[in-house]
Design a protein around this nucleic acid. Structure first.
Length: 445
DNA sequence: ATATATGATTATGG
DNA sequence: CCATAATCATATAT
């Protein structure tokens, strides 16, 4: 058939379009639009039988049509619009249209079927779960108000914890807000685009057959596209959260030693309360305050209550684990407190300023009656600690070492001031000497 | 470069 | 929530 042959000669770019038309033309057989000139000057072939007697003229007509089609983009929008309207109004249009629909229905079924409901992407689910777990997705907790509420709630007990985490939380909130904003934006854009496309298709459905299924498919494609964009968003959000988290954890893990002074204060408390090295909450707060005060000159290394707790936890366990290693330290600090106590006592008794060259009592305030009590307690517990190896509730499982070492130092049993006297004759190391001399000062008061 | 010290975190139990 | 014990990871000493 000459028509189809001709059509087959079309350029590749037009082939698909023309193929449809060729089939349509074939299927409508003898029906033609002959005799009805179309607005815009496009003339359709005159009525002809299919006897093939007028092949050349027909070819010429078709050539014209093709030419017009190919140059249609050269025409103005108004012209095209008018032409479209003209076609729409053509009296044969309903018949043509129904045929087109029919064909479409047949061919469309084969187009579809291959791609259908894809299972939920496991990776997407993973991302969703993670975002949910990180609190990025899920119910909005009100951003700033939540942070404020949390801070308020924590201000009593774990204020430091909240402060430590506050900027992490702030950043997380920021990420969440961006995420939600973007998500909403995408959602909106998706909806807008969908309705736009649907309107377009509806508009086009007047001139070309579009089945509801096709629209549905189109919407599906759009949604898939947008959900893939959303997945990218989720992915980048996850990434941001991960980076934030790792940075935060790194920062937290980054260890900075306490200042010498802070360590001294903590050690002093520890060894003066060796029998029960469990500072109360208030005591911890005070220690934290003291430590941060003494170190105030440095960078803002504010030692928090939880840091004090950490310190005591570590200290207890490490002391208990290897008492021998801490002996020197224990003696040192015991001596310090003893000296201070002695000085305090001496000062109190003599009502004068008894300054010792070994320990310029700069860091310690003796005005405070608490401290004096502590000092008194420390003397007692210290002595019993040193010579029994254990005391109070802070029981030491392997206190034998200590006991032995002390025994080697002091073979006698312990009896109050006598101990000091006995030990005095065996002063060996400077630290112990310091301690012992300090102890010997005790009877002064 | 290796060893030790140390602050922080985690797991577990009360 | 607090204590302990183990562990991590870094800081500092050797």
């Amino acid at each position: 058939m000459s028509f189809s042959i001709c059509v087959a000669q079309c350029t590749d770019s037009l082939a698909a379009t023309m193929d449809d038309q060729a089939r349509i033309m074939q299927s409508i057989g003898g029906v033609s639009l002959a005799g009805h000139s179309v607005q815009g000057g496009m003339a359709l072939p005159p009525p002809h039988g299919h006897d093939g007697t007028d092949g050349d003229g027909r070819k010429q007509d078709i050539g014209d049509i093709l030419h017009q089609i190919m140059t249609i983009t050269d025409q103005s929008l108004d012209e095209a619009q008018a032409k479209k309207h003209g076609l729409n109004c053509h009296r044969m249009k309903p018949a043509l249209f129904s045929v087109l629909c029919e064909i479409k229905e047949k061919t469309g079924l084969s187009i579809r079927g291959a791609q259908e409901e894809d299972p939920p992407d496991p990776q997407l689910m993973r991302l969703d779960n993670m975002l949910l777990a990180e609190g990025v997705a899920g119910p909005e907790k009100g951003g700033g108000s939540a942070a404020a509420a949390a801070a308020a709630a924590a201000s009593g007990g774990a204020a430091d914890n909240s402060i430590e985490h506050s900027d992490y939380r702030a950043k997380l909130t920021q990420i969440r807000q961006i995420y939600h904003t973007e998500l909403e934006k995408y959602e909106q854009a998706c909806n807008e685009f969908t309705t736009h496309v649907m309107n377009l298709l509806r508009e086009q459905s007047r001139t070309r057959p579009i089945s509801p299924k096709e629209i549905e498919r189109m919407v599906g494609i759009i949604h898939r596209k947008f959900s893939s964009i959303q997945m990218q968003l989720k992915q980048s959000t996850c990434e941001a959260v991960m980076i934030l988290r790792s940075r935060f954890l790194d920062a937290r893990r980054k260890r900075r030693n306490f200042s010498k002074q802070a360590t001294e204060i903590l050690n002093e408390y520890f060894y003066s309360h060796l029998s029960n090295p469990y500072p109360s909450e208030e005591a911890k707060e005070e220690l934290a305050k003291k430590c941060s005060i003494t170190v105030s000159q440095g960078v803002g290394s504010t030692i928090t209550v939880s840091q004090v707790s950490n310190w005591f936890g570590n200290k207890r366990i490490r002391y208990k684990k290897n008492i021998g290693k801490f002996q020197e330290e224990a003696n040192l600090y015991a001596a310090k407190t003893a000296v201070n106590a002695a000085q305090a006592a001496a000062a109190a008794v003599q009502n004068s300023q008894a300054n010792s060259p070994t320990t310029p009592n700069s860091g310690f305030q003796m005005k405070d009656e608490d401290f004096q009590l502590d000092s008194a307690e420390s003397k007692n517990t210290l002595l019993s600690n040193m010579f029994t190896g254990s005391s109070g509730s802070f029981n030491l499982p392997n206190s034998g070492d200590m006991f032995l070492s002390m025994q080697s130092l002091n073979g006698d049993s312990y009896q109050g001031a006598q101990v000091g006297a006995n030990v005095q004759s065996q002063v060996g190391s400077t630290n112990q000497g310091q301690f012992l001399s300090a102890v010997l000062v005790l009877p002064v008061y």
